[in-house]
Every structure is written in C-alpha cells, then in structure tokens.
Write a protein that binds this DNA or RNA. Structure first.
Lengths: 232, 232
DNA sequence: TTTATATGATTGTCATACAAAGATTCGAGC
DNA sequence: GCTCGAATCTTTGTATGACAATCATATAAA
C-alpha cells in the first residue's frame, strides 16, 4: 500500500530558505530597489536570523544574479541595464515560447483551467486599476505555464530570468496606458492555449514578450539618458 | 593620467571561490561522478578549508544545479537524465546560435584568431587520440564564443548549462568514432566565423549541437535502460 | 590644505557548539 | 535465528563568537 499521501511535510522549512524567499521578495517588490546596499548585519537583525543563514542566502542570490558584489565586496541589488533587459527578454522569448508549446502539448485540463482563471483575474484587476497586485498575478501566469511544460530544465533556466525582471515588470505595469495592449496579448495567448493550438500560442507569447521588451527597454534607456545628463 | 596598469590584484582570491572552483572542476572531470555523495566534513578535510567556506560553495553549486539535495538533506552530484540532457541541448542550441551570431558581429580580430587557433589545437589533439584533454579544449572553444558575444546575460545563462553537461561531453568525446563528425562540424563553424557569415556560423553551431544532443541522449537512454533492467 | 593617525564599519574565514533527524548497531526477548 | 527497540553514530542546520584584512571616515597635526 502507498502512504505517499500521509506525508505531512516534505521540506521542514529551513531558515536559509525562508531568508532567501524573503530577500527575493523584497527585491522583486522594490522594497530593496536596484542598487540598494545589503549589509549582512542589518539583514540579520531585520529578519532575526544568524549571519550564517544570511550569508548562505546571499550566495544563492549571487548565483542567480539578483545581487552583485562590488570590488569592495559589498553586496547590492543588481542594476539591470537596458542591454541586460533586452537580452533577458530575447532569451525569455526563446524559452517561454518553448514552454508554452509544451504546455499546450502536456498540461492537464486543470492546469489549462487554472491559466484561464488567472487571466480572467488579471483582466478584472487591471480594469479596477489595482496595479499593485498585477505583477504578482503575471508571475503566477508565467509560473503556471512553466509548471505545465513539465521540464525541470526549462523552469530552472527561465525562473531566475523572470526573477531578475520582476521589479521592472512591476514598474512597467504600473505605468498608465501600458496595460491595455498587454491584456489583449494575454487574451490571445490563453485563447490559443484553450484551443490547443501550440503554434498560435507560441506566436502570441513571442508577440507579447517583444512588446514588453520594447516598453521596458525604452523606459530603461530613458532612465539611463537622464542619469547621464545629471552626471555631466 | 591613468594608473590602471599599476593595480596589483583585482580579486584577492577568496577561499570560497577557490573551493567552488575546485568542486566544479572535480565534478566536470568526473572525479566526483554523477550521484556521488558530497559530505561536508570530508570536503573540508580534502581541501583544507572550513565548513563555512564549503557550505557557501555548495549553496552556489546548488543554485547552478550541479548538485542536488535529497530529502535527507544530503548533497550529491546531480544526475542528468536523458530528458534533462535533451532540454539542455535544445536550450544551448538557442543560446549558442544567438551567441555565435553576435560573435561574428562583435568579436575582435584577435578573438577570431584565438578561435581558429583553438580549433586547430583540437583537431591536432583529436588526431593524436588524446581524448583526455579534448573536453577542456572544447570548453575553451565555447567560452571564447561567449566571451566574444559581449553579452553578460547570455554568458550567465549559458555557462551553467555548459557546466552541467561538461562531464557528459567528456564521456562522449572519449568514445571512439564520435569525434570524426564533430571535427568537421567545428571546421564548418570556424570557417563561417572567419568568413564573417553569421547565418552560416549559426547554422553550423545548431547542426553541431543537434548532433551532440542525439549522441548524448542516445547514450543516456541506453544507460537508463540498462539500469532499469538491473533493477528489475 | 594636506598629511598622518586613529577609529569604525564590513566582509571573509575559522572554530565551536548544539539540536534535529536519519541511519546503524547491538542486545533483549521471543 | 529473528524481530523489536534502545543506544549510538553520522550528517546537516543554525547560531555564536572571534579575529584578520580592507576600506572609509573622522580627527589631529603640520
């Protein structure tokens, strides 16, 4: 007889995972914005954990390129340049079209339903103008697709990239006027998925990511130009 | 006046980096083969460093998916399934065709020369049948391309993938008969790069990675079937 | 103002310590 | 001889304290 279902906890929750999660979250919500310095002792106090755990979490964030170390060894939240963002979105385009194709081929009916539901919630939330929660929902959307694509490797490669642009996405979506186009793009994606048309879904995803890329790169370039002017 | 050249050290070499490097190396050469358990205390003794440093290095390897943790928290060298390898190679195909296109567009003449040189060395080494060093040289080849592609993001995404299949590549290349085809593929790549033909170079790269994928996936599937038979 | 010195802040590294959880050993009892 | 359970060993997770090295800042001296 199988007792798999009786298993209570799989991962008795490690302090370092909790720390990692908290930090990741703080970075993607902008609580720690790009460039913000992360001082070990302060993080320890803020989260009530030991330096050991903070440091191990920082090492992981470092591998994920969510933080960067200066020559002086100081750690700060990674700053994404326009070029970085452009490349990230180009790679996402490749990965997530691949993922959505597999989603169409492999995901369960429940997963498809979930995707539809998320999309509807997004539309509703956007209509109400509650931009705050939109970023998290979009994240759920992408994660559902990755999950349903049934590829450990694709997820492992794509998720860190998603994390790196999380904050940018949140910024971009709170800008007025940038959501309308996005909504119809998502509509198209979900519709194609529901219809079981992998090609069309992939095409819609690519279109969506190209548009997002253009918007975000434009914004970052504008910021960089402004910063340059101030510096001169 | 510029004093850049007077700078003595850029990276005063951290113990944890040294440890990380050593471990990565041990894994890609097969000194620690897939599935091998990595016990913290043993690693400390083997490399003469403290547990702190070993653990921080392990966290990074974990983020890179070079090691995996069991439910019992034990760490072992990651085992790559045929499916994993297939996906890794599919993603590499996307990333590295992108990279070689940029290499053609952006790399310096010196870098092109370096690539040609590496390719010649590989051909010579293969002719002599010294399969031992071939894997490292192939690694140099890919790294040179990533370097010359001038994209931090592409490198950051591609390098961990390369690391994950390093050991498999070494295995595969030491198999008799699998190098001949590979050599002409590399020839074609380098020739196209030298001619400045990005499309052709990308095509050659894709072809090369598709062939490598087929060989490696076939091998892994055979291994998995054999293992299954033994288990039954 | 510049120079030299002291002081502080932060990170890297190590050594210990101990709890929790699993795995292993070993003996008592059948 | 075999099974069960207690005692023990192993390994990891976490915290703490300590100290060197490096860089930054402030302060005093010239």
């Amino acid at each position: 007889m199988e007792y798999e279902d009786l298993r209570i906890i799989e991962t008795p929750s490690l302090v370092r995972d909790y720390t990692l999660e908290k930090l990741r979250n703080a970075i993607s919500t902008g609580l720690y914005p790009p460039g913000a310095r992360l001082v070990e002792r302060e993080l320890c106090e803020a989260m009530g954990v030991s330096r050991t755990s903070v440091r191990e979490a920082l090492r992981q964030l470092q591998s994920e390129n969510l933080v960067e170390v200066s020559k002086r060894r100081n750690i700060s939240v990674a700053v994404i340049t326009a070029k970085d963002a452009e490349d990230i979105y180009l790679i996402r385009e490749m990965l997530e079209t691949m993922a959505i194709r597999r989603f169409v081929a492999l995901a369960s009916a429940d997963e498809v339903k979930l995707l539809v539901k998320i999309q509807k919630t997004i539309a509703k939330t956007a209509a109400k103008g509650e931009t705050r929660q939109l970023a998290a929902m979009a994240g759920d959307f992408y994660n559902t697709i990755l999950e349903g694509a049934r590829s450990r490797v694709i997820s492992e490669v794509a998720r860190p990239l998603l994390a790196r642009v999380n904050y940018l996405r949140a910024m971009s979506m709170s800008e007025p006027g940038r959501m309308e186009g996005g909504l119809s793009e998502w509509d198209a994606m979900v519709e194609a998925v529901a219809a079981g048309d992998g090609d069309k879904a992939a095409h819609a995803m690519a279109q969506h990511l190209r548009n997002s890329r253009a918007a975000i790169v434009a914004r970052l370039e504008a910021d960089e130009n402004r910063a340059e002017k101030v510096a001169s």
